[in-house]
Each structure stands twice: as C-alpha cells, then as structure tokens.
C-alpha cells in the first residue's frame, strides 16, 4: 500500500482540480464542450487517489510492472489529445478571424464610399 501521506496529498490535489473545473463552469468561463473532458479527468484522478488498487489492477492487466508508469502513460495520452484539440480549435479561430478581417476591410471600403460626399 502506498504511504498514507501520499494518498492524502493526491486526494487533496484531485479534489482541488475538480473544484476548479466546477467553479470555472459555474462562472461561465469554461464552455461545456471542454468541461466534459476536464470533469472526467478530475473525477478519475480523485477515484485513483482514493483507491490506488485500481491503478495496480489495471497495470497488472496490461502488463505494466510499476503502476505509476501507467499513470504517466495515461496522462501523456490525455495531455496530447487535449493539446491537439486546442491546436485545432486555434486554427479554426484564426481562420474565422481572418475571414472577419477580410469582411471588415470590404465593408469599411463600402461604408467610406457611401459616406463620401458626391464629387459632382
């Protein structure tokens, strides 16, 4: 069994993470579509912190000798997926803001032409 102090620290960190996600959601600072994944991760962390045997069991199942390595592997995959998703979103936002900039350029030109007093 892992050290009791370690368990306590993990549980505190996991609950703090869950609380943070919940609070951000409550203040409408986090969109629901991103919140789902973070809630799943935060709850999962709490569960693993409270019952480290789960980690041990899964590690044995997939043939990883040290359970913490399973944790690292899992975290790596999750962080990779999340950052890839964010890159995708940033690309989408950039494209949208470019389109808007082009539209603004066109509309400004049209408004200027309309507001200009007729020459003759």
């Amino acid at each position: 069994m892992p050290d009791l102090r370690l368990s306590i620290i993990s549980i505190i960190v996991a609950i703090a993470a869950l609380g943070l996600v919940f609070e951000l959601l409550r203040r409408r600072r986090l969109r629901e579509k991103y919140a789902a994944i973070w809630i799943v991760i935060a709850v999962g962390t709490v569960v693993v912190a409270v019952f480290p045997q789960i980690l041990q069991g899964v590690a044995d199942l997939v043939g990883i000798r040290t359970p913490s390595n399973l944790l690292f592997f899992g975290s790596l995959i999750v962080l990779f997926a999340v950052s890839l998703q964010l890159s995708r979103e940033v690309g989408l936002l950039e494209e949208q803001s470019r389109r808007l900039a082009e539209e603004v350029g066109t509309l400004t030109m049209r408004v200027d032409a309309l507001e200009k007093p007729p020459d003759d």
Binding site: A101, E102, G105
Partner: peptide
C-alpha cells in the same frame, strides 16, 4: 481596402 490587421499576402489576396 484597409485590413484591420496584418493577414499576409495570402489573406490580402483572398480579400
């Protein structure tokens, strides 16, 4: 046509 910020030649040409 004044673009509000720099888009690069590609963006300018698309506009």
């Amino acid at each position: 046509m004044r673009l509000p910020f720099n888009l690069g030649v590609g963006g300018a040409m698309r506009a």
